[in-house]
């Protein structure tokens, strides 16, 4: 007895594994939106969403990290409650946080390229601390640059008001996330897998 397989174009093992990882990373970034800590230096609570963006670029590399963040936006747009505060819907992608959200795939690709030195994915735990910190600082600049620009365009306000409303209270916590990300990348529980 033979099995008919003609016409079925199977997805390769490597692609299936990368897709599963990208999707799970997008879901984890969404789940991070629900984890909040009191902020020691600012009244705005800290959520770990941006940490998800950093780690997507570092751990999945520029290509699949970018795919992962694109999935995050698409899933949120069609109704999976993964945007800040558990919100969802295509309207959020036109809303006040639009600049931040659209910056996530760009940032993941940028951090991936900077950490891995190109589009080939190497061992992220072998990257030097300077390289990792530099890449994440560049990521923060892109996220907040586009985020503030988004508020200026969407809410029709000036640079100062947009910066005060959307960045001033949140930026100090990014230094803590960068420090945490360094520890995570080097953590032996993850490097062993």
């Amino acid at each position: 007895m033979s099995t008919e397989t003609s016409g079925v174009d199977l997805v390769g093992d490597e692609t299936a594994r990368n897709l599963a990882r990208a999707a799970l990373f997008a879901a984890l970034t969404g789940a991070f939106a629900y984890v909040s800590f009191p902020n020691p230096v600012s009244p705005a609570p800290i959520t770990l969403q941006v940490l998800g963006v950093f780690l997507a670029g570092i751990m999945l590399g520029p290509v699949w990290g970018g795919v992962s963040m694109a999935l995050y936006l698409l899933a949120g747009a069609v109704g999976v409650p993964i945007f800040a505060g558990g919100s969802a819907g295509i309207g959020i992608l036109f809303g006040s946080t639009a600049g931040y959200l659209w910056s996530y795939p760009i940032t993941a690709v940028l951090i991936g390229v900077l950490v891995h030195g190109g589009f080939e994915v190497g061992d992220s735990s072998a990257a030097s601390t300077t390289r990792l910190v530099g890449a994440m600082v560049a990521g923060v600049v892109v996220i907040y640059g586009l985020g503030v620009l988004g508020i200026m365009v969407v809410n029709d306000v000036g640079l100062v008001a947009a910066f005060l409303a959307g960045a001033a209270a949140f930026i100090p916590a990014e230094a803590l996330k960068i420090a945490a990300a360094l520890g995570i990348v080097r953590n032996e529980r993850l490097t062993a897998t």
Binding site: L19, A23, A27, G30, L71, A75, V80, I82
Partner: peptide
Amino acid sequence: LATGVALVFRFLPVL
């Protein structure tokens, strides 16, 4: 992308 979105939806509550 379509499969990925379905997986995000499925795994969000689990994660």
